[in-house]
Amino acid sequence: MNIRKLLVLAGLGLAAVGTYFGLFVAPPERHMGDVQRIMYVHVPSAWIAMLLYTLAFGFAIALLWSGRQKWDDLMVGAIEVGVVLNALLLVQGSLWGRATWGVWWDWDVRLTTSLVMAILFAGVLVLRRMAPNEERRSQWSAVATVVAFIDVPLVYFCVRWWRSLHQIQSSPDTVDPAMVLPLRLNSFGLLFLALAWMLWRAAIERSSRRASEVPLPTRVAIEESAHA
């Protein structure tokens, strides 16, 4: 409980300062102008979403290895927060694309990979809801998480090659130190917030799991009343 509050406070503080610097202090980018300020939320979202998926992969391996349910709680937390950030990433990317390329969507490597990634991990959450019982649920989601995570680099390479026939990637890497600071602050801020939410989600999963474990006397009573 306490660590979560601490993480939220630190995260909110860092993100607030970072956003202030990003919006009002950092200079506009040389080519993209003020639009580039989207980067200060966009890039952290991407980093933290990837990090959460990686954590989820680790939790999935740990769950399959040890069979302990606590890994399932953390795994669902990581995936759920990851999918939320992933969805944000797509919206921010689309806005950025509209402002710089003039289109809402472009079949760009990173944009396309993150769309596939979002659908893959959202699929894991859907599979969870369908599972017949608790043990199946945790093992199925771990299996689906491992399978989905391995797919991400493959999708990335595929889309890159698929695209490279049309256009060469252009990356305006003119990074001003004044741009690094808000990026770093926002990244750590979002990291702390995301970790706090992941732990929160895990705690919810744990307590709802406990609640669904009906104690034995109650179950006997239910069965008896069913027979009567």
Binding site: P28, M32, G33, D34, V35, W96, R98, A99, T100
Partner: peptide, 8 residues
């Protein structure tokens, strides 16, 4: 330079 863009 892309002008405007604050709305985005």
């Amino acid at each position: 330079v892309i002008g405007g863009g604050w709305s985005y």
